[in-house]
Simulated assay, not measured.
Amino acid sequence: MILCSGEALIDMIPEETVSGGSGYVPHCGGAVFNTAIGLGRLGADVALFTGVSRDGFGQQLEQALQDSQVNTDHLVRSDLLTTLAVVQLKDGHATYSFYDENSAGQALRPADLPALNDQVSTLYFGGISLVNGPAADTYAAFATAEAGKRLIMVDPNIRPGLANDEASYRSRLDQVIAAADIIKLSDEDLDWLIPGDQPPAEKMQSLMAKGPMLALLTKGAEGAEAFHRNGTHASAASEKVTVVDTVGAGDTFNSGALAKMQALGLLDRAALEQADAVQLAQVLGFAAKVAGVTVSRAGANPPWQSEL
C-alpha cells in the first residue's frame, strides 16, 4: 500500500453564476489528497493519512476518497473546520489564498501518527502540509521516523507566500528531503530551493546529495526529466492538449509516477537503486499522460484507468 500523508482541503474555484456574476464552487482538493485520489482511480492500493473535519466539507472529502477507492482507515477526525483554498485563475494558471488556522488538518500531533504494518510499503509527503505549524512538524517527524524502513517520496510543491517563517520552512523541507528516496519538483520549486544560475541538472544533483536516489523535474510544456544517483537520466515530452487550467496538474503527475513505479516493481529500495533509463522514461511518460488529462478539464479531476 501507498500511504499518502498530508492535506485534504476544499478548493473554492470561481465559476460564473446563473445571473452572470462570479461565484465560488467547492471542489475537493489539496496536493496530497489529489495524489491519493489519482492513485485510487488508477487502481493502486492507496490510503490517506490526514486530519479531516466532521463538518459538511469534511464529509464531502471523505465521500470523495471512498468514491475513488482510497482507503480511509487512517483519517483523524475532529470537530474543527476544514481548510479552504480560494483559487484565482488567470490564463488557466491557478494561484491560491489559504484559510488554514485552527483547522482539522492543522490539529495533527505526533500522538495521531498511525501504527503501520508491513502492507504499507511507500509513504508520500508534500504540499502545504509541510509549510506551517505543529502539523507540518508532525509530518516531518513521521518521514524521519520511517526513513529507511519504507520507500518515501516527497513533492514540496513550494508555497513561499504561505510560510509564516521561511527559515523554519526551509529547515523542515531539508529534514523531509533527507528522509526521502524520491523527490519531485517543478522548475519553479527547484529555483526556490536552490537559487542561482546553475543548470537544473546540477541543482538536482545537489538535492540528491542530501538523500534521495531519484529526482523528478517537471517543466510544464517542456516535459519532464528524471535524474538518478547512479547517473541514469531520462526525459519525456508533455502531452499536447488544450489546457483548461493547471489545478492539480503536479499532484496528478505524482499519482501517475507512483502508479507506474508500483507496476514496474520500483517501489522497493533495491529495485529503485537499479532503475534504468527505459524504466524511468516509462514512469515519466505515463505520469505526463495522466497529468495531461487533468489539465484538459476544470479543477483537480484525475483520470480513471479506463480513460487512458
Results as ranks from 00 to 15, higher is better:
H93T: 09
Q175D: 15
A141V: 03
N102S: 10
G133N: 10
A104Y: 06
S121N: 05
F253A: 02
P302D: 11
A115H: 09
N301Y: 08
T294I: 03
L284M: 06
P114C: 04
I183L: 14
D174S: 12
G38W: 10
V120W: 09
A224M: 11
G148C: 08
D11R: 04
A94L: 05
P134G: 12
D79H: 11
G250Y: 04
N157V: 06
Q274V: 08
P114Q: 06
V278A: 15
P134E: 11
V244W: 05
A8K: 00
S68Q: 02
A163H: 05
D45V: 02
T95D: 15
Q198P: 00
G299R: 09
G92I: 07
W304R: 12
L190Y: 11
V283L: 05
D79Q: 11
S53V: 02
K149V: 02
G29T: 09
P114N: 10
V70Q: 12
A209P: 09
G20K: 10
L190E: 13
S22W: 07
A111Q: 15
N254V: 15
G211I: 01
L80T: 00
A298I: 04
D191M: 06
A263W: 02
Q119G: 13
L80W: 03
D118P: 07
L280C: 10
M1P: 14
D187K: 05
G248K: 07
Y24P: 03
F125K: 00
L61A: 07
F49H: 14
I177F: 00
G211W: 04
S306M: 08
D197E: 14
E239T: 15
H27L: 14
A8E: 00
A209F: 14
G148I: 05
R170H: 13
E202L: 08
V52I: 14
A44Q: 13
A111M: 00
L3E: 03
A179G: 03
P110F: 08
G148W: 08
R150W: 06
I183G: 07
A209G: 05
D174W: 06
A226W: 05
V87C: 09
S19T: 13
R229V: 12
P114H: 13
A226T: 06
N34T: 01
H93E: 15
F286T: 10
K203V: 13
R109Y: 08
A263C: 03
K289N: 12
S238N: 14
